[in-house]
Design a protein around this nucleic acid. Structure first.
Lengths: 129, 129
DNA sequence: GGTTGACTTCGTGTGCACTCGAACTGGAAG
DNA sequence: CTTCCAGTTCGAGTGCACACGAAGTCAACC
């Protein structure tokens, strides 16, 4: 089923710019099963629907929070299986949220070390001057 | 200059466990110049002083906050040049702290998306049941 | 004094997430 | 009709941060 160019769909290049990924990555995500096969126009070129773009946006958030591509693929598979996996998807997100919270807590601790060091350098600079 | 085994120094294995890195990584860090050449005992085995361990601990914090090894090496080089690089080291830490703060802000934003999604799944589960 | 186990160096291999080059094709503009 | 650009597939290459196997050495313990 071809998608008309006149719809509000985007080309790879446009979609890539919207979501902040490269065209290479977009095709690779599709190949890796992170994205369901994208619709094509009559010339065989990908046309990204607003729904596709939303999905990609979500993927970028997952990726940025450190979710491995492997887990993103697992999530994509669940999503393709429809409503009966809603619970599994929620569990996946909750587990991931916990990991993100843990990472944020770690970062706060590490930040203390950084600040302590900066202060120490400040004091040392004062000394040697 | 050999270091006596009777000192409170640690072997690679012990140091690795203390700082949460593998022995492979510890030797690799040294090879990469992230750590100044570590003292050896009479048998040529590495002996890590408390100071070495402190330094390694700091490196793990930098690493965990996402500093690339390249930058850690640059920092190590500055540190080896003594007090005259105190300002540069402080600047390096301040710039890194800013990046960490930015990343934390990003994570907070991403967390909102996760929470929104979890809520949406919860509502959807309620519907389909 | 033989065995064990942790160390040594050296080069090679691994996993992840892209990233790119090559060769080709199709639609739009001049 | 030609030129040009953005798209296509496919396989190969890149960068980062380790991880590991092989071959050997040495101190400690039974």
């Amino acid at each position: 089923m071809d998608i008309s160019t006149r719809e509000i769909t985007l080309t790879v290049g446009e979609a890539a710019e919207r979501v902040g990924l490269t065209t290479y990555t977009l095709r690779w995500y599709e190949q890796e099963g992170l994205v369901a096969p994208v619709g094509r126009d009559s010339a065989g070129r990908r046309r990204y629907t607003p729904g596709d773009v939303d999905w990609l946006f979500l993927l970028t958030r997952l990726r940025r929070t450190g979710m491995p591509v492997r887990d993103m693929r697992r999530y994509a598979e669940l999503a393709r299986q429809g409503d009966r996996t809603l619970g599994a998807r929620r569990a996946l997100f909750e587990a991931h949220r916990d990991r993100v919270l843990q990472r944020m807590a770690d970062l706060e601790e590490d930040l203390k070390v950084l600040n302590y060091k900066i202060d120490a350098y400040r004091r040392a600079e004062h000394e040697t001057r």
